[in-house]
Amino acid sequence: MSVDAAELNEKLHRKDIRDRWFLSAPALILIGVASVGPLLIVLLYSFLAPGNYGDVKWAFSTDGWFNVFFSRDIFDDTVSLADAHFTIFWRSIRLALATTVLCLIFGFPTAYFIATRAPQNRSIWLFLITIPFWTNMLIRAFAIQEVIRSEGLINTILIKLGIIQAPIQMLFTDFAILLGMTYVHLPLMVLPLYASLEKLDFRLIEAAYDLYASRFNVLMKVIVPLVKPGIIAGSILVFIPALSSYVIPRVLGGGKNLMIGNLIELQFGQGRNWPLGAALSVTLVVIVLFAMLYYVRNAGKNGGSAHG
């Protein structure tokens, strides 16, 4: 009898584990269909030849990848590095990093403010933070355009007040892109920061003041180390979409200030070079992957040393 019982137990245990796999199947299927699958298709396309009117020819070709890094002169076939691409990649990374830093600078006080409100009022503030999400990003980008263009709100007011004579060129500059990206991505920084700050024991701040810490040291030696998980999460959530921004640089950067997203779009649209577009997309994924690995490892290392 007892042997039977043990056997039954064992069987039930195994069945339990199988059931759990079964329960996670929807997530696995979703990841497979929506994430891994498309990525593999993009990878496949990057090794095919471009079709005449877009699309691809089913023939193996490394031209797509070649064109990511090099450009061939159309007259004498000399090969040189694709400076334009490197420039765009580099400015994309720069702008995405700057956006992340700006979101952190503006997002931290915001999250701190919300986390220090009375508990019953916090959800109202969080709700207010999410309001911009209700409107399409394209419309918000055009709204910013309206504010900063030469005949826009800011320039008109400044000229009326006599502070400036001629309008300041803000639209179609890196400043405009940065402004737009910071505005759009700010909630993605505030929410994880808030989640961390909300768990922070504010008595630790009192303890630090009691032990002669200045305001700056309270922030740097106590608050920042303790909300590090939120800072990491927020930075990742902002950096990745910022790096692959498409709408904001298109609307606020004009045609000249391209980012990776616009470059990729160009290859799939006017450029009719899908393999190059696919190769650029994969390159972007690889950049993000390495940036994240580097960032998380470093952040973890610092945390580790602080933990002795």
Binding site: D201, R203, L204, E206, A207, A208, D210, S214, L226
Partner: peptide
């Protein structure tokens, strides 16, 4: 932080990091 007075808190408030 300007007073030569220190506190032992009820919940200790030790820095966990």
């Amino acid at each position: 932080n300007q007073r030569p007075v220190n506190t032992v808190f009820q919940n200790y408030a030790l820095f966990p990091h």
